[in-house]
Each structure stands twice: as structure tokens, then as C-alpha cells.
């Protein structure tokens, strides 16, 4: 499904260059559960942003279902994100002015789903993460764990085949974090491809495959047996 071939992401910093990604090649197949692990600054988020079409690599090619992403227009990439990717961010990234319901509704609006049909899908997603009763709350009326639930519901609502989660438990206590991971794992069981970014080996150990990054390079890529 995802094929990264010799990807570089280079930021100019004054006279020097920062190689956030330094020649990464990675294949991720449908229905896989991959954890990307590494220390802070190793390039995990950069990698996820490229996979999610939020960012473009400086060089190298990214084939998505066999199609070259660099050849896609902005709007085609937007279409891809909308249909195929569900993002779960470390800082939740909910729109503060919108209620939980409205936040979850957004990907469906951009997909052009009719108002009637949206209602059911949104409530179903909120129920799945156990927060349907708070659907009228604004993000700042929710706890961190509840906000992350909303953001997972938002990632789910569009029924994307790929879920990208960047440190989804980073801001949560360990019990709530474990609950979130249970959700995500359950989703993977239901057939969603899951890419989970973390710096926590315990978290990564839930995955079937762990990719270790260091200084923008892959230093290890191993299957995990449970």
C-alpha cells in the first residue's frame, strides 16, 4: 500500500542542513500494524507527515497504491487524505470553536456526504470511542483523554483504510493511554492499516512490526512475535 523509496527530507538551517529523513525506504502493506519508534528528533513525525501527504519529501519517491504522490496536485492529495487517511495527533488538533460533533463531522463534510447521512456516521464514531454523551461539548470542555477520543472518532468517521497516529498517548496517563491503544489495536483488527508513532518501547511492543529510526535513518525493522 505504502512504498517509500530513498526518501530524504532536508531543512536548510543557516549554513547547515538538517537531514530530518536521511534516505528512508519502507514498505507497508495493507492491514499491517507498524510502530515507528525512535528518540526525539529522529524524524518520526516527519516520516508520518510524508506518509499522510501533509508534507513532501526533498527527494526520493513515495508510491501510494502504486501511484507516485509527487505527481498529484494539491487537491488530489487533499482527496487522498480525506478518503484514505485518518490522523490522530499528539496534540489532538481539534478545532476549538467547533463542538465534538462538528469536529468529527468535518472529514465527512469535505467528502461531500449529505447532512442526513452524516449524523448517523458521526454518532456511531463517537459511540465507538465512548463519548457520544459529550457530543455537544467544545474541546475545552473536555479532558485530554476525552479530546483524544474525539480525535480518534474523527479519524474513524471517514472509514479510512490507513490510520496514522503520532504519539497518541503522549499527553495521557498510562491507563487512558492504554485504553486508546486498545481502540487503535481493535481498529487494526477490523482491517485498518495502522501506523503508530511512539518513543515508548512498551507501546511499540503492541505492534506486529517495529521500525526503529535514528537520525533520520532506519536502524532496525523487525517483526514482533506476541
Amino acid at each position: 500500500m505504502i512504498q517509500l523509496i530513498d526518501i530524504y527530507k532536508i531543512y536548510p538551517m543557516g549554513d547547515e542542513e538538517v537531514h530530518a529523513l536521511d534516505g528512508i525506504s519502507l514498505d507497508i502493506k495493507e492491514r499491517e500494524f507498524v510502530a515507528i519508534i525512535g528518540q526525539s528528533g529522529s524524524g518520526k513525525s516527519t516520516c508520518m507527515n510524508i506518509i499522510g501527504c501533509l508534507d513532501v519529501p526533498t527527494s526520493g519517491s513515495y508510491l501510494l497504491n502504486g501511484q507516485d504522490v509527487s505527481a498529484m496536485s494539491d487537491d488530489q492529495q487533499a482527496h487522498f487524505r480525506n478518503k484514505t487517511v485518518g490522523f490522530v495527533f499528539q496534540q489532538y488538533n481539534l478545532i476549538q470553536k467547533l463542538t465534538a460533533y462538528e469536529n468529527v463531522e468535518l472529514p465527512l463534510i469535505y467528502r461531500g456526504v449529505h447532512e442526513r447521512d452524516r449524523r448517523e456516521v458521526v454518532m456511531e464514531a463517537l459511540e465507538k470511542v465512548g463519548i457520544a454523551d459529550k457530543h455537544k461539548n467544545l474541546p475545552n470542555q473536555l479532558s485530554g483523554g476525552q479530546q483524544q477520543r474525539v480525535s480518534i472518532a474523527r479519524a474513524l468517521a471517514g472509514k479510512p483504510s490507513l490510520i496514522l497516529a503520532d504519539e497518541p498517548t503522549g499527553a495521557l496517563d498510562s491507563r487512558t493511554g492504554a485504553e486508546m491503544l486498545d481502540f487503535l489495536q481493535q481498529l487494526n483488527g477490523e482491517g485498518h492499516t495502522l501506523v503508530l508513532i511512539t518513543h515508548d518501547m512498551n507501546v511499540a511492543s503492541r505492534a506486529k512490526r517495529v521500525v526503529s529510526l535514528s537520525d533520520g535513518r532506519i536502524v532496525e525493522d523487525k517483526e514482533v512475535r506476541h
Binding site: A78, R81, F87, N93
Partner: peptide, 16 residues
């Protein structure tokens, strides 16, 4: 700006 970023991440096209 951040809101716009979120909307784009969720698949908002330029026109939207």
C-alpha cells in the same frame, strides 16, 4: 492558520 491546517489535513480542498 492552525485551524486551516487541520481542515487541510482532514481533506479540505483549496476551493473549500
Amino acid at each position: 492558520t492552525r485551524e486551516i491546517g487541520i481542515r487541510k489535513a482532514l481533506g479540505a480542498r483549496r476551493r473549500a
